[in-house]
Write a protein that binds this DNA or RNA. Structure first.
Length: 111
DNA sequence: CCGATGACCATCT
DNA sequence: AAGATGGCCATCG
């Protein structure tokens, strides 16, 4: 059942789905936008449960340093980087190149 | 049914 | 300066 609407997890999924192609966001930014307590913790948990949702581009979500923290959760550790590069995002040593430029903040983008 | 676990970040020592 | 800890929701065994 993906019909909840009251749990934080679905809220996170909605925001992650809204991340434009070729852009990346962070756990903290999403948590901040949703006003989640405990900050990025919940977002991290949410992404962990996002495994059945193909509409959730988890590869566009990285930590605040622009590092691919959850790369190990994909089909292959290289899959996350591969997907990012496929969208035109350069990744070097598990870190987003030009992260500041590619950073997509929901509270700013969704004015 | 209950216990354990998980993709983070900030602060304290 | 680096390691340890706190916060807290949902899912899995």
């Amino acid at each position: 059942m993906k019909r909840s609407g009251e749990n934080y997890f679905d809220l996170v999924y909605e925001v992650v789905k809204l991340i434009p192609k070729g852009r990346v966001s962070t756990y903290g930014a999403i948590a901040n936008y949703l006003g989640i307590k405990s900050g990025a913790r919940m977002v991290g948990y949410a992404m962990n449960a996002a495994h059945g949702l193909p509409e959730v581009p988890a590869h566009r979500v990285v930590n605040r340093l622009g590092i691919l923290t959850g790369k190990h959760h994909f089909s292959s550790p290289e899959m996350m980087q591969n997907l990012l590069e496929n969208e035109g995002v350069s990744v070097e040593k598990d870190q987003i190149v030009g992260f500041e430029q590619l950073f997509w903040d929901p509270s700013t983008a969704l004015l």
